[in-house]
Amino acid sequence: MNILVIIEHKNGVMHRMSKEAIAGAQKIGGNVTALVIGENSDSITDELSSFQIEKTLLVTNEKVTSYNVDGYKEIILQIVKVVNPEFIITGHTYQARDFMPRLSASLDIPFIPDLVSVENSSFTKQIMNSKLNASISSSSGPVLISFQSASFSEENISKGSSPLEKFEVSLDASNIRSTADEPFQESASEVDLESAELIVSVGRGIEKEENKSIAFDLAEVLGAEVSASRPVVDAGWLPSSRQVGSSGSTVSPKLYFSLGVSGAIQHVVGMKGSKNILAINKDPDAPIFEIADYAVVGDLLDIIPKLIEKLKDL
């Protein structure tokens, strides 16, 4: 069985969820081909060559030097003809959501997105805002799937060595119907959450902007970074560079210490891969407790100042 994994990369760094997709593809089992499209990809193909996969295909084309939905679609269609995959796999990233449906309609095969597991061609997906799960199957033969963040761990990738092949494509410029400007950030990034070992995260439960100092004080004694959920960022209490979740960063620190974060699915997908989750919330039914290792039911405004004093005395 042939599996094609489409790799996402930016500034010479492979997307973490692309590695998880490789781990997932290896678990499904078969001949895994990784596809890398675009320039500045030497470090990506180097890393892929250390994985136990069939091969890596590299496509560079002057019409698609960076991500473009039409260009990606055309290139992947040409690759699919050669690889003949049963599964076309990506991480469930914003980029995948942009081009995978185009492939689905073009190839006339299903795109079953945001999967949390795969067993014997039965795909499990969360539905109803993650309150329920659904088992979905396909009767089409080949299928496009994407994995939710942290459904597989990059630590489980089987290592080995694999060759790199360059693949030439010919693209018709008239098929490219959109042009993208350079990506930009609205606020300069002041933090690197994705490499932080310890994170203190702030949710709406801190109640007032002034109370964010509690989180920064706790982070200081622990040597942690401070992150936030989307409502806190939308309120303007913290910049978007500190946001964790589907529209922010995806993190997997040793400790994710959440203060008054309710645990909406949009937030959870960005942090559920954390090694240890310690959550404080007043509401014993807060969804964050479903994925927490330690669930502290109580008022963070009482608990955290005392905790900071205690930690300072150690």
């Binding site: 914003y94 042009t179 993208a180 400007d181 978007s240 560079s241 946001q243 960063s249």
Partner: peptide, 10 residues
């Protein structure tokens, strides 16, 4: 895009 990035597309 992800992680606080945006992009204009025509």
């Amino acid at each position: 895009l992800e992680s606080g990035w945006f992009q204009w597309v025509t």
